[in-house]
Nucleic acid binder design. Structure first.
Length: 509
RNA sequence: GGUCCGUUGGUCUAGGGGUUAUGACGUCGGGUUUUCAUCCCGUUAACAGGGGUUCGAUUCCCCUACGGACUGCCA
C-alpha cells in the first residue's frame, strides 16, 4: 500500500517521558522524515484520573530538546485538530454506538465490585480464563442477559454503563507486524474490552482506532506493550468497516535495565547514577526533582545517536550518526525484536565522541554560562583555547569545571595523592629555579613554545629528570596531576599568575 | 494461571544451512605523552539447552528453560 506517510507519537500525560518513550517518538520521527511524511503529536488524555500537572508540557519540551520536531500537534495545530483527545470527546460516542448498532459491541452495567467478584471467582475455580468474554458475559449484567426494554430503561434512567466490544468466537486471526511478521491468535483468547467508559470518554482502544483513522495515520509505531491488543485493534478496524484503511503496525521492544532484568525504570537511574529522562522533572506533588540527560551534561545529538542505536542499526560498522544520516538510513525492518539493555557506559562514550569532535567555538558557547556562573569572565578567544585543551578530556559537559577551573582561578588545594607522589626534598629548590627562568621571560614572549623551550633547555642542560620538575610544576599550577599540555597552561594563565602559583605552592605544600 | 513476544561475548549488535561468527562499548595489556585524556596496537569473551530436518545446523521446525509484555471503566 503506497500512501502518504503520517505517523503519530501518542503519549499519555501521566508523568515523565523516559528513554523508551523518547525512542518511540524518535523512530516515528525518523520514519516520517525518511519518507517525507508527517510527524504528529497526539495527547491521549482520556483518563482524567491519571492527569498529572505539567506532564504534557514536559513531553513537548523534551521532544523539543531532542530535536524531534512536531508537524502537527496540540501547539502546532493542523487540519486534523484538535490533537488532544479530551478535546475530541464528542466524536467517539458515535463510533461506539455504531458498533452497538452493528452488533459488534454491547452495553454492560456491571459495577467494579461485580467485576472484581467475577475475576476472583474465576481464579478460585482454577479456570485459565479470567475474562469478560463470550462465556462469562452470560453471567453478567449486559445486553445479552438483560431484555431490550431493561437495557433501554437503565440507559434512560442514566444508570452508568459501559460499551464493550463483542469479540468474535473461535476465529483464527492473523495480524501483521512489520518487525515481528505474522502473529497468530485465536479470538477466543481475547476478552470483551471496554470501548466506552461510564464517564463518557472512550478507552485507549476505541480512541486510538478512531483517531488514527480520522487523522489518516499510515503507520503505527509504538511500544511492545501494545502487541497483545493488536488483534483487538484489527478487529475494531474491521468492525468499523475500515479494514482496507488500517495503518501498518510496528511494535518496538522495550528498553531494559542495564543489569538484571526487567524494564528500565526511574529507580534504576537513581540507584545506578544515570539519567533516565531527557529533561529535569519536578514532581508537582512531592516536589522531588529528577535530573535529565540534559542537566547531567549530555549533548542532544549524542543522546539521540545513542537512543537510535538501541535496538536498531543500519547493518554497517558505523557508530556515529548525525540526525540527517539517521533519517537517510532508518528502516523499520532493521529494528531488533529483542529488548535492549540500556548502557550508561555507552551513553557516556557517545557523549565523549561528540564533545571531542565539536568545534572550539561551539564548545565555547556551551562553556560560557558555566564560567559566568563561577563568576569569571574572559574573552571568547580565551574560552576557545580552554575548549581546545579540555575537549579530549571531558565526557560530560558537567565535567568541564573540574577540568578547567585552574584556567580561571588559583588552586585552593592540592591533591594529596599527587603531592605524596611528586613532592620530594629537592622539589622546592627545583621550582625556585624554574621560577627564576620564568621571571626572566618577558610578557611578550610568554608563548607556549617559548616557555616550554626555555624550561626544557634548563632541564636538559642540568641533566635533570623531566617528570621530577614538570610534575610538581603542574601540581602548583593546577592543584592536581593530570590535564592539558603544561606549557599551554603556563602561557594561558600568564607570567604573573604562574609566578604567583609557584610561590603559593612552595609555601603551602 | 493464561495469551503473546523474545533469547549471538558482561553490554549494544552484524551475519546466516558449510564463515578463522562482524563491528562497537567495557575489561585487561602495550605504544605515544612530563601527566591525565585522546590516539594507535593488541587481548578478552557469544550462537540458552535438548530433540528433529539435512551430507552438514548458530541459521529451518518442535520442545524445554529463562526473560519480558499483556491479562483494568490505565495508557
Amino acid at each position: 500500500m503506497n500512501r502518504k506517510v503520517r505517523v503519530r507519537f501518542a503519549p499519555s500525560p501521566t508523568g515523565l517521558l523516559h528513554v523508551g518513550g523518547v525512542r518511540t517518538a524518535l523512530f516515528n520521527y525518523l520514519f516520517a522524515k525518511k519518507h517525507g511524511g508527517t510527524f504528529i503529536l497526539r495527547i491521549e488524555d482520556t483518563d482524567q484520573t491519571r492527569y498529572v500537572e505539567g506532564a504534557e508540557d514536559y513531553i513537548m519540551k523534551s521532544l523539543e530538546w531532542c530535536g524531534i520536531n512536531i508537524d502537527e500537534g496540540v501547539k502546532e495545530g493542523g487540519k486534523y485538530a484538535p490533537y488532544r483527545q479530551s478535546e475530541r470527546k464528542n466524536i467517539y460516542k458515535k463510533y461506539a454506538l455504531e458498533l452497538v448498532e452493528s452488533g459488534n459491541a454491547y452495553y454492560a452495567f456491571d459495577t467494579t465490585e461485580e467485576l472484581d467478584e467475577m475475576r476472583e471467582r474465576l481464579e478460585k475455580s482454577g479456570s485459565s480464563v479470567r475474562q469478560y468474554n463470550a462465556v462469562t458475559r452470560g453471567e453478567m449484567k449486559n445486553s445479552y442477559t438483560l431484555s431490550g426494554e431493561e437495557v433501554q430503561k437503565r440507559i434512560a434512567n442514566k444508570e452508568s454503563y459501559v460499551i464493550r466490544f463483542n469479540i468474535p468466537v473461535n476465529e483464527e486471526l492473523i495480524v501483521h507486524d512489520i518487525i515481528r511478521g505474522d502473529v497468530k491468535i485465536n479470538t477466543s483468547e481475547l476478552d470483551d474490552k471496554v470501548l466506552f467508559k461510564s464517564d463518557g470518554l472512550p478507552t485507549y482502544h476505541l480512541a486510538n482506532i478512531v483517531d488514527d483513522r480520522l487523522m489518516e495515520i499510515s503507520h503505527v509505531i509504538r511500544g511492545e506493550e501494545w502487541l497483545p491488543s493488536l488483534p483487538l485493534h484489527v478487529l475494531l478496524y474491521r468492525s468499523l468497516g475500515w479494514e482496507n484503511l488500517m495503518p501498518e503496525f510496528a511494535h518496538l521492544s522495550l528498553i531494559l535495565k542495564p543489569n538484571g532484568k526487567g524494564k528500565l525504570s526511574k529507580r534504576d537511574g537513581d540507584s545506578l547514577g544515570f539519567p533516565v529522562f531527557p529533561l529535569q522533572w519536578e514532581d508537582p506533588k512531592t516536589g522531588e526533582i529528577t535530573k535529565g540527560f540534559k542537566e547531567e551534561g549530555y549533548l542532544r545529538d549524542a543522546f539521540i545517536n545513542m537512543i537510535a542505536l538501541l535496538g536498531w542499526n543500519p547493518g554497517t560498522d558505523q557508530e556515529i550518526f548525525s540526525v540527517d544520516e539517521l533519517i537517510q538510513l532508518f528502516d523499520l525492518k532493521r529494528i531488533g525484536k529483542a529488548g535492549a539493555k540500556f548502557s550508561p557506559e555507552k551513553a557516556k562514550w557517545y557523549n565523549q565522541q561528540y564533545i571531542k569532535t565539536m568545534s572550539n567555538s561551539e564548545l565555547a558557547e556551551i562553556f560560557k554560562p558555566i564560567i559566568a556562573e563561577k563568576n569569571h569572565s574572559c574573552t571568547n578567544e580565551f574560552i576557545e583555547k580552554v575548549a581546545e585543551s579540555v575537549k579530549e578530556r571531558i565526557v560530560l559537559i558537567n565535567d568541564f569545571w573540574a577540568h578547567a577551573s585552574f584556567f580561571f582561578e588559583t588552586p585552593k588545594e592540592y591533591n594529596p595523592a599527587v603531592v605524596k607522589k611528586n613532592w620530594k626534598e629537592d622539589t622546592v629548590e627545583n621550582l625556585n629555579k624554574i621560577k627564576e627562568i620564568i621571571e626572566n621571560i618577558s610578557e611578550s614572549d610568554f608563548s607556549t613554545e617559548n616557555t616550554e623551550n626555555l624550561v626544557k633547555k634548563y632541564i636538559e642542560e642540568n641533566q635533570l629528570n623531566f617528570g621530577k620538575i614538570l610534575n610538581p610544576l603542574r601540581l602548583v599550577l593546577t592543584g592536581t596531576g593530570g590535564g592539558p599540555h603544561l606549557f599551554d597552561i603556563v602561557s594561558m594563565i600568564g607570567k604573573e599568575e604562574t609566578l604567583k602559583r609557584i610561590s603559593k605552592g612552595i609555601s603551602e605544600i
